[in-house]
Each structure stands twice: as structure tokens, then as C-alpha cells.
Amino acid sequence: MNIFLHELKAYRKSTMIWLVSLTAIMVMFMSMFPSFSKDAEQMTTLLKGYPEALRKALSLDLANFFTILGFYSYALSFIVLAGAIQAMNIGVSIVSKEVREKTADFLLTKPVTRTAIVSAKLAAAFASLLLTNIIYGAAAVMMATQVQVEDFNVTTFLLLSLTLFIVQLMFLALGIVISVMARKIKSVLTVSLATVFSFYFIGTLGGIADEQTIRYFSPFKYVDTAYILKNSGYEVSYLIVGAVLIAVAIGTSYYVYSKKDIHAV
């Protein structure tokens, strides 16, 4: 419990900053919605002029773009990207932080098992992300109610918002594996930006090629906003694969960390 609270406190500042940033992106997009929807017809004609591949890459879905849910899912592609960086940052720094700040010797010579250390750190990371999502989700619903022109389906809206959390959990797990495997990570941001953007581009490519299998290679595509809009639910097969990947990543992290030599720096 003491490690959990200590870690939570350590993430406090960055969680606040990310929360504010994510909410700011959302507010910025949503406040543009009323003017967009007013000129919907003109915009549609304009956007139709864009090549289809480009529209797919930008995940512009013209049929839905001018409904609040469609517009929100467009905004989400940016919000989720930023959120992925947040999650990846936390994940990568979980273990590497101790090595970089040379505090591993402090923590690991205390009467605790390494498993308990990983659990506490994971729980703290999870709690930070959960908190981010709860507050962000509440803010998003409030904002949507402010700018709506007609009633919208709140469940679908929440399902859309929840994609942020799902993608974040995947990147959190990925970050932990990387941080446990690497001997020393000098700059967390470099690692997480590189990884997140690589997966983002893989996902974008998949969008252009309309290839279903490629979706499995990008955490961003496990939750497809277009599908959620249409069906007001998730694609179960992707959720299962995602959950398995997270479980494998976390299991591996536990195993590697408990076998790892902690070298003096």
C-alpha cells in the first residue's frame, strides 16, 4: 500500500497535466461543432472533393461527420493518440524510472517481493489512467450536452469515450514490457513517442488499404469508432485479442522483473 500511494503521488502532476490537455483538445473540437453543423452541406461538397484514400486516412466518415457522435469520433482520433502517449509514458517509466533515478537499490533492499513492487506500481498506473478517464468522460458528456443541436445517444457517446481507456491500457501494458526488458532507458518520451506514432501510422495504413488483418497490429484499431457508431457496441473478437495481449504483456513483465539483475549504475 505504501508503494502504491507513493507512486500515485509521483504521477499526480503528470496525470493532472495530461487530463487538462486531453480535456482541452476535446473542448476545442466540440466548440467548433455548432458552426460545422450549420454549414454541413457546403462542407460535405468540399470534402467530397478530397480523394477517398485521404478521407480514410483522416478517418473522415462523411455520412456521420456532421452528427455530434460522428464529429466526436473524429476528434477522438486525436484525443486517443495523445492519451496513448500518456499511457505509454507511465508504462515505460514504471520500472525505468527507478533505474534512472538510482532508486532501485532503495526499493529493492526493503522487505518486499519484486512481485509486490510491480503490482503496486501497476495499480498506481492503472488508477491514474482510470481517474483521467472518469474526469475526462464526465467533461466530454457535459461539453456534448452544451453544443448539441439534437438529442444524441449517451450510451454510444460513452462507448466512444471508453475507447480512450481501452487503447491506453494496451499502451500501458506495452510500455511496461519495454521498460522491464530494457537495461536502461535514458529518455522515456523518445521511446513512447516513437512507439505510439509507429502504431498510429500502421493503423492509418490499415485504414487506407481497408485491410482487416492489419488492424490487429495497431492498438488504435482494436476499437473502431465507425463500428461503434453503427452498432453501439464493440467488436468482441478485437476486445478478446486485446485483453489477451495485455495479459501476456503484464505476465511477461512480472516474470522478467522478478528474474532480472538490478545493476549498480
Binding site: 509521483a10 532508486t103 532503495f106 533492499t109 522487505p111 517481493t113 509486490a116 549498480a264
Partner: peptide
């Protein structure tokens, strides 16, 4: 290890604690 460490005090050669 965890049990033994209850009764061990360790001072590393290079100390570097949580800065904040």
C-alpha cells in the same frame, strides 16, 4: 529475501534518492 531484509540495513555506495 523479503523476510531477511526486515533485519537488514543497507547503505549503497552511491546514494540517490527520489529528488522530489
Amino acid at each position: 529475501a523479503p523476510e531477511i531484509k526486515k533485519e537488514i540495513g543497507y547503505l549503497p555506495s552511491e546514494v540517490f534518492y527520489y529528488d522530489n
